[in-house]
Structure formats: C-alpha cells, structure tokens
C-alpha cells in the first residue's frame, strides 16, 4: 500500500472529525449566547433525518454564521500550528539559534520531519478550503454573513501562500534552482 496515501488517510481523520465537532459546538454556543429558541425536526422519509429549526430566519442566520466562523477558525488554528512547525520546528531547514534554544529547554522532540509535516499540512489546508467553500456557498444562499466568507477566503489564501513558500524552500534543498546552479 502507498505510504503517502496511508499518511494522508491517517492525517485526515482528526480534522474531518474536528470540522463536524466545531460546527456542532458553534451551533450550541451561538444558541446559548444569543438565547435562541430552537426545535429539532425529524423527517422519517428523507436521507437527512434531523434538522435544527429556529423560530425565525434571523436566528438561523446568526447561528449558522457564528458556527461557520468557529468551524473555519478551528481548522485555521490547526493550519497555523502546522505552519509554525514548518517555519520554526522543521528539521530540514532549522535555524541554529532556535535549535540551540530547543536543546536548552529539552524541546528537541518538537522538531518535525518533512515526511510527517507536509501530508498533514496538505490535508489541513484542504479542510480549510472545504470550510471556505461551504461558507462561500452559504453566503450566496444568504444563510451566512458575507464577512465570514471573506475572512475564510483571506485566511485560506494567506495560509496556502505561506505553505507554498515553505514547500518551495524545502524543494530547493534537494533540487537546486537555476540561480543556485549558476553560482
């Protein structure tokens, strides 16, 4: 079996579950914070058997928007941690000063290798884009505030750019660029 596929599969389990948990948590928190009335509607004949129903459209808009914000933010936190690891705790391009500090404080085990980091980063970024697409679609359907979609788009583009930069730097460690070869 392909090792890369195995790595991707195991890396995807946690963010997949986290995405659902964050959405549910967001719905719960926004309902509690804004003190909104809700009921559960069950459809026995449909594929999706349970639906959360609020008393008016504004309540549904508020809960959906804030739950989407929590969902995007949760995945964004995960991506940010991985980007931090990529930039500061990556064994392949380690800053000597940081390395000394890590050894000093006995945090050397925090170093990550590329084989572990990049599959994780790719999966988490995919989930961030997935939550962004959901937010965009729901903004078009007028069920989410436009600000949430804008935040998600900006966050996704920025983190993808940072990840791409780090990946490029990593590639150049093994395949020198044309500029390097001239030197």
């Amino acid at each position: 079996m392909s090792k890369l596929l195995k790595k991707l599969l195991s890396a995807a389990l946690f963010p997949a579950a986290l995405l659902i948990v964050a959405k549910i948590l967001g719905l719960y928190l926004s309902t509690r914070i804004f003190d909104l009335d809700w009921v559960l509607r069950s459809h026995t004949s449909e594929f999706f058997s349970i639906e959360l129903i609020y008393t008016d459209s504004n309540a549904a808009l508020i809960t959906n928007s804030y739950s989407n914000l929590i969902m995007v933010s949760t995945i964004l936190i995960g991506v940010t941690i991985l980007l931090f690891q990529a930039y500061f705790l990556h064994d392949s391009h380690q800053n000597p000063k940081v390395l000394i500090k890590l050894i000093q404080f006995d945090f050397i085990m925090w170093l990550v290798d590329s084989k572990t980091l990049y599959p994780k980063l790719a999966v988490w970024l995919s989930f961030l884009w997935l939550s962004t697409i959901v937010s965009i679609v729901q903004t078009i359907q007028s069920t989410t505030y436009i600000g949430i979609a804008v935040f998600a788009i900006v966050a996704s583009i920025f983190t993808t750019w940072l990840a791409a930069r780090d990946f490029e730097r990593e590639i150049h460690l093994y395949i020198p660029s044309a500029k390097d070869l001239k030197l």
């Binding site: 959405k23 639906e51 008393t55 549904a60």
Partner: peptide, 10 residues
C-alpha cells in the same frame, strides 16, 4: 454533515 447542520427556520 456540515451542510446538513445548516439550521432552518419556521
């Protein structure tokens, strides 16, 4: 699941 969790209203 996330799409299905989109709340409706009465």
């Amino acid at each position: 699941t996330v799409i299905n969790l989109t709340p409706g209203y009465m």
